[in-house]
Amino acid sequence: MKSLFVTLLILGGAFLAYDYFGAPPGKKLVFKSLNVPVKPKVVQAKPAKEEEEKPVVKEAMPEPPKPAVVEAPKPVEPAPTKPAAPATTASSGPKFEPIENLTGNWLKIPQTAFPREVKLLQDTMFKMSVGASKVAAGGKAFAIGSEGGTIILAPTATSPARGQLPIDATDLKEQLNASYEKWKIVRAEELKAIAAKKALNASSAPVEAAPSSSEADAAGKPVRDSKGAFPLLVASMHRGQVTEIKPENVLDWNDPQPVMIQGRSGWAVKLTANVKTIFGLQPVEAQALVLNGKVTGWFYTGSGEEVP
């Protein structure tokens, strides 16, 4: 019994010691005076914001376009200058028309273009009073004339046999074109020499005398002579004012027609004359302009070019 009491005493002492020393304030059962009132923790509420601050996201602005870098153009080297092609026309003479114009589009080839040897591009029959013969394509024959685009042929220069072929069945066009190109170069040089000579004569020529009554009337109009020619124009030819037209090559004189020359009243006398062409002398129309009884110039009526 004594031991039980001791045990209880020990347990009571231990409880009191724990209650005094170990129990946290506010939990003591025996020594309640030691319980310190625990102040409630005051939690300060954060002030409510009208709107929760949101992180400001800066809107990406497009970068201004960078100025384009323009490279300075590289200097272009000038192309080498090609030498000028030799002139085939002369300013003092007629322009060189296409050969088609001179041949009536190959339907009216002047007889002066014949005879000439040509190459046959197809078989050709040559007929005579007794019998006929054939020359195969690739052979040669003599073109002696043309009729509306058809070439009249002979097997030899003296043969009486005759054959016919379209012009395109021979090399005649090719031959005449080549001859024309060569002739234009030679002719251009001739015209250049003529122009230079005329310029020299004009610089040293004496003052032209007033026309006589046999050359022009009181109004300056050219008059004809007993042969139907115009002495005023013939004298102009003899003076070298025009060399392409010669008195002996004039085929026909027309009557003078009133025209305006340099803003004044004058006269134009047309004529037909044979002049030099690739096919020899061929008829062309030209006119002389007369002002105050003096010839001021000669011109081809078709092209308007000055007659050399």
Rank of each mutant, 00 (worst) to 15 (best):
E306M: 14
W267S: 00
E305H: 14
P65S: 00
P222Q: 00
Q175W: 04
Q262I: 07
L233S: 03
A157I: 09
P83A: 15
E248C: 11
G149T: 02
I194Q: 13
K66P: 01
D252T: 14
D217S: 08
V223K: 02
A210G: 07
P67N: 05
A218H: 02
V42W: 04
T7L: 12
A154V: 12
M1L: 13
K54N: 04
G240R: 06
V36M: 10
V284T: 09
E63I: 08
T112L: 12
A60N: 08
E306K: 13
D171K: 07
S213G: 11
A161K: 03
I278M: 06
K276S: 12
G302M: 10
G22K: 04
E63V: 05
W298F: 14
S133A: 13
L8R: 02
L232E: 02
Q287V: 03
A154R: 10
K294V: 12
E53W: 10
N249C: 12
T277V: 09
K246I: 15
D168M: 13
Q287T: 03
A210Y: 08
P160E: 01
L172R: 00
V250L: 14
F279S: 03
L153T: 03
K2E: 12
S33Y: 13
A268E: 09
D19L: 04
A87I: 10
I185C: 11
K54H: 01
F299K: 08
E51Y: 13
F279M: 00
A216W: 00
K74W: 07
